[in-house]
Design a protein around this nucleic acid. Structure first.
Ligand code: FES
Ligand code: FES
Lengths: 132, 132
DNA sequence: TTATATACGATAAAATTAGTCCTATTTAAT
DNA sequence: ATTAAATAGGACTAATTTTATCGTATATAA
């Protein structure tokens, strides 16, 4: 319960790996996949997603790869999670709200309270703290 | 991401419902299932589980049901979640530790840090705060 | 021209979660 | 005694979500 997804896990592995290298060197999906025993395709998609969100920059062609371009201490863990996995919450009733139970539901407000606590917590942690 | 399970959701609905009633009245699974449009069987199992953990007391036979016997302000949300769903963590590597990647994994420590923050947060919230 | 990389949509497989079914037992009410 | 309504709990099925793979296109260095 309350697990992070593989996608986030692979993203963190890759970021951490990149941070341990010099700033201008590129890291390919292959390199990370091989070194950490992670599925290449899925990792690649995740890297692409991070590039799309301007956390990484992608360079195509052979000798290509990715490098970190964002200031990781400016990105909250909450934002990071949401970039990769969408809205962060313990229940979905508050985002799409097509929940049919919403009329006679007695826990919407209390759960929202937990939610806010959790979002606050992840808002206060930065990506840098995790990958450094 | 980081969603709670239906089981926990149903448990909270039931607890909240019970708290709105006088202390000695019993609440049956049927009553809650009907009122909140929740699957009876699954709810029943959840109530049984809470009874097993001495949060509720069960009374058998017709006119039977459940009532709250624990001090809800003495039960942390962390304990509650773990009673219902088992160990609370963003990755399982830290509990069973049969993870084959553990040798060349570069995010075990950082994730554990996030984990601790999350566990701390849920340790500080009580069930009472949520169901009151 | 070739090889190796990113890009990305589509699909398949696996795992988890959610829900149902069935039978047994308890016990109040008739 | 019998019935009906409740808990108890194992086994199973269905649904959903997550995870992984496949296939094809494009970019580009060698
Ligand atoms: S279950 Fe959707 S609002 Fe409570
Ligand atoms: S993936 Fe299991 S220890 Fe990192």
């Amino acid at each position: 319960m309350l697990n992070i997804t593989r996608k986030v896990e692979y993203a963190l592995i890759a970021l951490r790996h990149m941070q341990s290298k010099s700033d201008n060197t590129l890291t390919s999906a292959n390199e990370v996949a091989k070194q950490y025993g992670v599925p290449r395709e899925l990792l690649a998609k995740t890297l692409q997603q991070m590039a799309h969100h301007n956390i990484l920059e992608a360079v195509q062609g052979p000798t290509g790869g990715y490098k970190i371009v964002a200031e990781l201490d400016q990105i909250s863990l909450k934002d990071f999670f949401e970039k990769l996995e969408g809205p962060l919450g313990m229940m979905d009733c508050y985002f799409d709200s097509d929940c049919v139970q919403i009329a006679n539901c007695n826990i919407r407000v209390p759960i929202q309270r937990i939610n806010n606590n959790m979002r606050d917590m992840f808002s206060q942690m930065t990506l840098q703290e995790v990958t450094q």
